[in-house]
Design a protein around this nucleic acid. Structure first.
Lengths: 350, 350
DNA sequence: GGACAGTGTGAGAGCGCTCTCTTGACACGC
DNA sequence: GCGTGTCAAGAGAGCGCTCTCACACTGTCC
């Protein structure tokens, strides 16, 4: 491949066989050394290791895979619409978490971003034994991939609670708790009528954040009113439009919990355009703690999620599922953190 | 793996052999059908295809890989610091472009996000024949990975011009042209003293955008002054600090070209805090056209880059390099687009 | 001292595929 | 009628590895 002439060797290079010859042992023994079997005498081990270094030997993954029936790689599946939505650094942070957890085990990360039309191809790939398991990132409710994989016995872990609430392992951020705390913070700060811009109802994150909002309202002795709830689609414009609707249905609102920073930025624009000051007239809390939260004026109080950790945990759950098939599904739910900024700091600490 | 009892089959399932038996032909013939060889009679082809469907056969990549010496997968290498910097949706957009181009050729995307300490491991992996080639995303100048790969003959394409300007293929966005147009736009709009917040000098994008700025200043008959140039590090705070420096060294500036939106948001905050109105007192143009650009007040005029296209082009260059080794390196430079928003709209069209 | 267990090492099969080589069938031209 | 060419299809080797089994050797125990 690399060199133009036909010489063997070079690329990829040495085989087990070659190492065995140099070390003066059999292929099997070299294999034992490489795979850290305890059944090798110390002197032989040293000799083999020297030969490995000398030849720059790297095991051929394909050959190993062929006999072990494992690919030593796992798939991360992020569908198109999801990828588009998460314009905050969700994507890189998650992948970084996954990547670091996999690297520690010497596993490979195969990334799949199927467009909706390619579902069949994706399913074929995932069920074809090319990966040992898959991480499915916050799919919409109608996605056919999860069922197909479950059907064929491919180990799967969801990142973000699956909408169906099926019997599967997942790791999630405690969206409900995050939303509850954000809303409670607004109430503690003196707000009387707290509205919310919720996310889409076909995503668990959207639903949970709305429930968390309601929890907090109820806990404060209030009751959840439809006039105080508007839905957005996690986009800037969606947030702006929802805010306009809220200003009509509940003109006396004095605080808003918005289920994403991007929507909150849209809502903020509308509030200021309508002459409401923030946080004095209307306090605002966003969600995600994305860079946008820090760049709006005033900057947004927001809910920060441990996304890298979510990636790492997801890997651990998946490896567990792979190693011990047939175990009941496990769930991991991680806590969030409220990051205070000017958009909600109404009361001075008196 | 999937089932607890010891039955064969199921998982991954059918082999070439099995398909051959069902179709009543030899293994070789099935292989020919799978690999679309023309040397198969139509009726046999039909029979084999039926058998493939019936058994749900998927070729075993490991076995194929073992004999063809190709892995049918390519690596995308994004180093840690880079990933952190690109908080705008650079990452997902790039990966989407790469992914779609690879999917069309039925190749796999292996994602590597090595932390600096893992360089040796990464190099070993990439040179170990596990991938057919690698896409290296905008590394810093001192990264040892490129040289190691070139050394071992692993096909490589850079995404973003490599700082060393080495003899390698790359695809880049025309940063210089983008910066030139952005600056020219400010001048056309009536600005007299245009300053710039530049990026880090160890990244090609930082250098090129500064050069583009200087091009435009020179083209307008002005001359580039040190007092009008401040450096940032592509972060919000970096942009804010650079802006403060500029206000000291050139208090009479009336426009600023900032080399990233995030820095521009920081600069904007400082300008407003110092009582300058935007765009009336100081016009502002950012770079990246990230979501942040649309959410600041006023929203930022910015330079939009064709990132998905960059990913796709990079894949094409890489496949080319893999298929025809020894070719001279090729470069692809893509044009940018200036997206006009309120931060620079000073003059009304009179 | 013979039976036995324990341990390190080698021989060899075989994972599922590709690819070269060979065979067989048929058509054509002299 | 026989050589020759063409084309579809099969036989079989072998890619680099793991893993079972067999084997030699050492020690321990009755």
């Amino acid at each position: 491949m690399a060199t133009t002439d036909g010489h063997e060797k070079a690329q990829g290079g040495a085989t087990l066989e070659a190492v065995a010859r140099v070390a003066g042992v059999s292929r099997a023994t070299v294999s034992r050394v490489v795979n850290e079997s305890p059944r090798v005498s110390p002197d032989v081990r040293v000799a083999v290791e020297a030969a490995i270094r000398q030849l720059g030997y790297t095991p051929n993954r394909a050959a190993r895979s062929l006999v072990t029936r494992r690919s030593d790689s796992i798939a991360v599946v992020i569908t198109e619409p999801t990828a588009r939505l998460f314009s905050d650094p969700f994507f890189p942070r998650l992948v970084r978490g996954v990547s670091s957890a996999l690297a520690a085990r010497d596993l490979q990360l195969v990334l799949l971003m199927p467009e909706p039309v390619e579902e069949a191809r994706t399913i074929r790939y995932l069920t074809g034994g090319h990966v040992d398991g898959a991480l499915l990132v916050s799919l919409h409710g109608n996605d056919p991939i999860p069922a197909a994989l479950a059907d064929r016995g491919v180990p799967v872990v969801f990142v973000g609670r699956p909408p169906q609430g099926a019997e599967v392992s997942y790791v999630d951020v405690d969206n409900r708790q995050g939303a509850r705390r954000a809303t409670a913070h607004l109430l503690d700060d003196g707000a009387r009528r707290v509205a919310t811009v919720a996310g889409p109802t076909d995503m668990a994150a959207g639903l949970d954040r709305l429930e968390g909002y309601r929890d907090a309202i109820r806990a404060s002795g209030g009751k959840s009113e439809d006039a105080l709830v508007a839905r957005g689609d996690f986009t800037y414009e969606g947030g702006a439009k929802a805010m306009e609707r809220l200003l009509k249905t509940a003109p006396d609102l004095d605080a808003v919990f918005v289920a994403s920073d991007l929507m909150a930025a849209g809502a903020l624009g509308v509030l200021l355009a309508r002459g409401r000051t923030v946080p004095e007239d209307v306090a605002l809390v966003g969600y995600d703690d994305s860079p946008i939260a820090a760049t709006t004026r005033p900057p947004l109080t927001s809910v920060r999620q441990p996304i890298e950790e979510m990636g790492r945990e997801a890997v651990h759950l998946l490896l567990d599922a792979i190693e011990r098939a047939g175990r009941p599904p496990r769930r991991v739910v991680l806590a969030t953190e409220l990051v205070l900024r000017a958009s909600s700091a109404r009361r001075d600490p008196s």
